[in-house]
């Protein structure tokens, strides 16, 4: 088989095709593939995004650069790669909450969050997030957004991928970046969870 000239898109399509056929034929299950994929997720995983968030919390100038040009700011920390070229970071505020979705497939900021979780690809999440985000967040994620707070849902595409800079929780004054980064969950950067200080 020749490898010459195959684009990334073509190869990705082949993986998808092979995987879907093998699942349909009962040769493997999605759960099993996920299970083995998860082992390496941490290499390119949400802890990279968490580092970026923590730095933005302690360094206002970095935060400004991150909101202005996310790929460049992430690059300062040596974080970047495929699917990260067109990233936009949305800052959560007391007035506005942000959440991301890919309405048609599963576009996702891979270099900072790793591979997307299963539910992110689920048609239920993709459609309900647009129809009734407040309800979905409360019912499926146990994340209750105050009624007075606006929710904006952003559609990631392969050309422009969003992720969320969550609010820094209170009670973390004087914490260093490492301590803060440990608080930042993947869900909080998707906008389906809060950042909580564990007692």
């Amino acid at each position: 088989m020749s490898r010459t000239g195959r684009t990334s898109e073509e190869i990705a399509a082949r993986v998808k095709a092979l995987e879907s056929m093998m699942i349909e034929q009962g040769l493997v299950t999605t759960e099993m593939i996920d299970h083995y994929a998860e082992i390496y997720e941490n290499e390119v995983g949400p802890q990279l995004g968490a580092r970026v968030v923590a730095k933005a919390w302690v360094d206002p100038e970095f935060k400004a650069r991150l909101l202005e040009d996310a790929p460049a700011a992430c690059g300062e920390l040596g974080i970047g790669g495929m699917q990260g070229e067109h990233m936009v970071v949305l800052e959560a505020t007391p007035e506005v909450h942000h959440a991301i979705v890919c309405t048609l497939c599963s576009c996702y900021p891979w270099p900072v969050l790793g591979p997307p979780p299963n539910w992110y690809k689920d048609p239920q999440y993709r459609s309900r997030m647009i129809r009734e985000p407040r309800k979905l967040l409360a019912e499926e994620f146990g994340y209750v957004i105050d009624e007075t707070r606006e929710i904006r849902v952003w559609d990631s595409s392969s050309e422009l991928r969003y992720w969320v800079l969550p609010e820094r929780p209170s009670g973390t004054d004087g914490w260093d970046e490492q301590q803060l980064a440990a608080l930042v969950s993947r869900d909080s950067m998707i906008g389906v969870g809060s950042v909580q200080v564990t007692p």
């Binding site: 048609l104 129809r131 606006e150 849902v153 952003w154 595409s157 392969s158 422009l160």
Partner: peptide, 16 residues
């Protein structure tokens, strides 16, 4: 699917 285009506005807004 038309998903190779950037979407610059929120796809949904639930005002407070």
């Amino acid at each position: 699917r038309n998903h190779h285009e950037p979407h610059y506005e929120p796809v949904a807004v639930d005002p407070g």
